[in-house]
């Protein structure tokens, strides 16, 4: 079941679109904001709320990179792996992150603290390599400075 708050937030967006189903992505993001990810149940709930089948919702949900259909950790690290960051050594940064967290890209730490996901260009190419932790953008990364950056995310 969607919570009252989720419903309210989705409904607040309704007047901005010509058809209810146009809210599909918005609604999934609202659910994700509250739960961290989009479960099968959430897919069904969103569908019911918008007059779509769960299949139709999932068709949309699975298309987009930032709708998580699997559980993620408390903090999501999106490390840029696109060209400018690559030129400036994002592979080494990512390898270092994997080493610190003890996981591979796409995985979540055992304590569910972090999920590490590579992401296309974050638009921070002048400060490459860059990563996004939750909503915070961090640039000019090196294998040596990332560990300290993660400390504030508990």
């Amino acid at each position: 079941m969607l919570s009252e708050e989720e419903k309210r937030e989705i409904e607040a967006e309704l007047p901005h679109y010509e058809r209810r189903q146009a809210l599909c992505i918005e609604a999934l993001k609202i659910v994700q904001k509250h739960h961290g990810w989009v479960s099968d149940e959430a897919v069904r709930d969103v569908g019911e709320f918008l007059g779509m089948s769960p299949h139709q919702v999932d068709s949309v949900a699975t298309f987009y990179n930032l709708i998580y259909r699997r559980k993620v950790g408390r903090h999501v690290i999106h490390v840029c792996d696109s060209v400018s960051c690559w030129v400036l050594g994002c592979d080494a940064v990512q390898d270092r992150l994997c080493e610190i967290l003890g996981i591979k890209p796409g995985e979540t730490t055992d304590d569910e603290r972090f999920t590490l996901l590579p992401i296309p260009c974050l638009g921070a190419c002048d400060h490459a390599p860059a990563m996004l932790v939750d909503k915070d953008l961090h640039g000019d990364l090196t294998p040596d400075n990332v560990e300290a950056l993660l400390e504030r995310y508990t």
């Binding site: 058809r19 949309v60 298309f63 930032l66």
Partner: peptide, 27 residues
Amino acid sequence: IHLHTSAGRYICGEETALLNALEGRRA
């Protein structure tokens, strides 16, 4: 004017894919 934040796909920048994304469909 409404702000719509996407859910991440480079193809959304292609203007007609963008229309589909705004309509809540696969972009």
